[in-house]
Amino acid sequence: MTDSGATPRQIYDPVSETPSSYVREAPGIQPPLDFPEYKSTALRHPKQPLIYLPQNITELTGPALGSLAPVGDLDNDLTRQHGGAPIGERTVVFGRVLDTEGKPLRNTMVEIWQANASGRYRHRWDRFPAPLDPNFSGAGRAITDDEGRYRFVTIKPGPYPWGNHYNAWRPAHIHFSLLGRAFTQRLVTQMYFPGDPLFRYDPIFNSIPDAAARKRLVSRFSIQDTEPDWALAYEFDIYLRGPGATPFEEAL
């Protein structure tokens, strides 16, 4: 536990499909950490400027799935995790996980969690007086296939009120968590549904400066993938940062 004194090993072994750096994101795509309209940011956002971190081996690698949480056969079907069927609009949510060069990320974990059809989370902090559904937990996992595709069957979540401001309601959304292939690609986001009347009032959605970047968090209704006599389908593709040099990388 004192100075290890170990000699560092040569770590830049040529490994296919591992970029030497990932693109830095353009301004406006990510929400700012300081966003007064979302009140909880007030005491939680760092105030000092972020310090530039060059990407090296720790940032270019990421956890292998095999040693982490196992994914079961029914983990991607949130409507079959209990004895009965949950109440609500049965919904297929599907899409691809890609990098910004359009290359699919295969064998990567997609985790989701959400409120039930009435807008209530199965969580002890959620005091919204809407019914819990004994047949709905609201959490799922999937692993992408060779084309980067994932697919969940779930119930369309309801909108729900929150305490941010007078008459504040979150647009219906599903939380997404992606590990990607590298620490640099890690992403936690939210998927929305098209045409939600609450978009214009929601500071979390509107914290993203770029209008096109906001729009990309809204899923697309797909009649082609809607299953007759069974479930509507919504498509949501996720783009994680892809390979790309940055002009600053050389400096460090």
Binding site: I29, Q30, L98, R216, L217, L240
Partner: peptide, 9 residues
């Protein structure tokens, strides 16, 4: 090149 997906809390 596609823009990357934005994060949310």
């Amino acid at each position: 090149i596609f823009p990357s997906t934005a994060g949310q809390t």
